[in-house]
Design a protein around this nucleic acid. Structure first.
Length: 525
RNA sequence: CGCGGCGUGGAGCAGUGGUAGCUCGCCAGGCUCAUAACCUGGAGGUCGUAGGUUCAAAUCCUGCCGCCGCAACCA
């Protein structure tokens, strides 16, 4: 029986380019996808863009582009960024695609047939500029703050989803599935919401050209959330390939931003129940990235000029450095901050000085003193230098932390449990001196240090895949890197031949993996 | 009293009853294989605050102060 893991990220509005906040979510989901693959799961990792919104249509018009052409162009730009970051998604759905339209209409028809959608009038303040209803709170002196024109009273028919009918079922569902909403604080928030004010929601708009039409009333298009959430099932085959859908659904994990928790934890499971399919198994609401400028911590915002594009960082450094910063510095369940100063500090201390330098010194010692081959290590099982916790405990802790999406802690575990002890061991045994008096003993020390590099590569595989491959590929380990799983960190392998460095050595040394950053010289805009 | 979360050395975080810990930064030594990297030691905290429970509280309870999130289209 194959183990399967279906995970998703939120789909993004393509009316502006992705920034480091959206990238944070994709990286976090990517680690989980890579980890699950490494653990032997058959993985379906889904991402996409949310295109059936009036904002997108308007943006396309502003640019004088066809809406579909605009969506396709933006989808291309998003995919380019995700590829540059090493995101390993298996599919990328655009909600303007035929498969989504078909699945969406099939789903909503099912909910309609089940009696959970009804027609009613909606009356409210309407802004012609926004082409949308506004709440009393959004208006300033009866005017729309964006367009400065008075809102008009308007009444129109629309279709409602009877969300309120699902109050008891949702609460029972949360009780039965305590891990459904994570982290814990989000769970309390949603449960309180469902207990107190679960209102029916308007799920249609009228007079729109762009969007998906109601199957039974073509005058209406389906309003954002009722359409967007469905990407999770339409991409899995709902409405087009039900066998495939049955294979993947329910999703094992939805990775989303904390701001849209309510839609995923209340509306979405209710929609599933209404359509007769199982709700997803787990929703994880991650924190946000803020920008630190001077003493202030501010929101990422185009108008504030605090927008940092992933490509800015990627061009200057590397995808691996980018991934490391956000995964190590920002706790995934909570909020984090970005600043170039902090980026440089972390990069230099963790990646250049600690990890990169360990690799350099180990390969260098083997290269220059042993002609790259550690004689006599064939058949020997290396001993991993460890710190305060044992090797087994280290791996168990790592697993628990990765599976619960506490990535910053998992990386701390790796550094404290493997890399720091390795550098300490090197210092204590001083193989550079030992080699002059007892070459065989020095070979043993280096063999153990190589093991530390190997374990680091194994545990780094979901986090920094390219770097991990480079580290691992620096030596003649028998097992192909693609086949490596977490369990390979538990025990040292016994090689039939002597351990040797196969990375390219120039003058007995490797090129630095992470050249140190000089903040002054490198990050000036 | 709308609901919820948070408050630990300069910064960022662990730590849910038993001598306060990690990373960065700072200071002083050591080493010199390595990317001026690495290793050791040190300074720096009345764990927001005031009470309570307990032999023992950062940890459990209560009040207060401060910051933040949510209150239906916001990554």
């Amino acid at each position: 029986m194959a183990k399967r893991f279906f995970l998703t990220t939120a789909i993004d509005y393509p009316n502006s380019r992705p920034h480091i906040g959206t990238a944070f979510e994709k990286i976090g989901a990517d680690v989980q996808a890579r980890y699950r693959r490494m653990e032997g799961y058959e993985v379906f990792f889904l991402m996409g863009n949310d295109e059936n919104t009036i904002k997108v249509a308007r943006r396309a018009q502003e640019l004088g582009e066809g809406v579909q052409a605009y969506c396709d162009r933006m989808a291309g730009e998003f995919k380019e960024v995700w590829a540059a970051l090493g995101i390993s998604n298996d599919d990328f759905i655009q909600t303007s695609e035929a498969r989504h339209h078909a699945g969406c209409r099939a789903f909503i028809q099912k909910v309609y047939d089940a009696g959970y959608i009804y027609k009613a009038g909606y009356e409210g303040w309407y802004c012609d500029g926004c082409e949308a209803f506004k709440t009393e709170k959004e208006l300033e002196d009866g005017k729309c703050p964006a367009h400065k024109v008075p809102a008009v009273r308007r009444k129109e028919d629309c279709w409602y989803f009877a969300l309120s009918k699902f109050q008891d079922k949702l609460l029972a569902f949360y009780e039965a599935n305590p891990d459904f909403i994570e982290p814990e604080s989000r769970r309390n928030e949603v449960m309180n919401l469902v207990k107190t004010e679960l209102l029916d929601v308007n799920i249609t708009r009228s007079g729109q050209d762009w969007g998906i039409r109601l199957p039974w009333d073509e005058r209406f298009t389906i309003y954002v959330w009722f359409d967007a959430l469905l990407n999770y099932i339409t991409a899995a085959g709902y409405g087009s390939d039900m066998d495939r859908f049955g294979k993947w659904w329910p999703a094992d994990l939805h990775v989303i931003g904390k701001d849209i928790t309510r839609f995923h934890c209340a509306l979405w499971p209710a929609m599933c129940m209404a359509a007769g399919i199982a709700p997803p198994k787990r929703v994880f609401g991650h924190g946000f990235v803020y920008i630190k400028s001077g003493q202030e911590t501010v929101k990422i915002s185009k108008s504030l000029g605090t927008l940092v594009e992933p490509m800015d960082i990627l061009r200057k450094f590397s995808a691996e450095a980018f991934r490391y910063y956000f995964l190590r510095e920002c706790p995934f369940p909570g909020d984090g901050e970005f600043s170039w100063k902090r980026f440089a500090d972390l990069y230099n201390s963790d990646l250049a000085n600690n990890l990169g330098n360990l690799y350099s010194r180990v390969t260098g010692l083997v290269g220059r003193n042993f002609g790259a081959v550690l004689d006599g290590t064939a058949g020997r099982r290396a001993v991993l230098p460890v710190g305060e916790i044992s090797r087994a405990e280290l791996v168990a802790r790592y697993r628990q932390q990765v599976e619960s999406l506490h990535y910053n802690q998992a990386l701390a575990t790796l550094w404290q449990g493997v890399l720091v002890p390795a550098n300490q061991h090197a210092e204590k045994m001083a193989p550079w001196s030992l080699v002059k008096t007892d070459k065989a003993a020095a070979a043993v020390v280096l063999h153990d240090l190589v093991e530390a590099v190997r374990v680091a590569a194994v545990l780094l595989k979901p986090f920094l895949p390219k770097l991990a491959a480079t580290l691992y590929g620096g030596f003649n380990f028998a097992k192909p890197f693609e086949a490596v799983s977490t369990a390979d960190a538990l025990e040292s392998p016994i090689l039939p031949e002597d351990t040797r460095v196969i990375a390219e050595l120039v003058g007995g040394k490797v090129a630095p993996l992470f050249p140190r950053i000089d903040l002054e010289a490198d990050t000036k805009e």
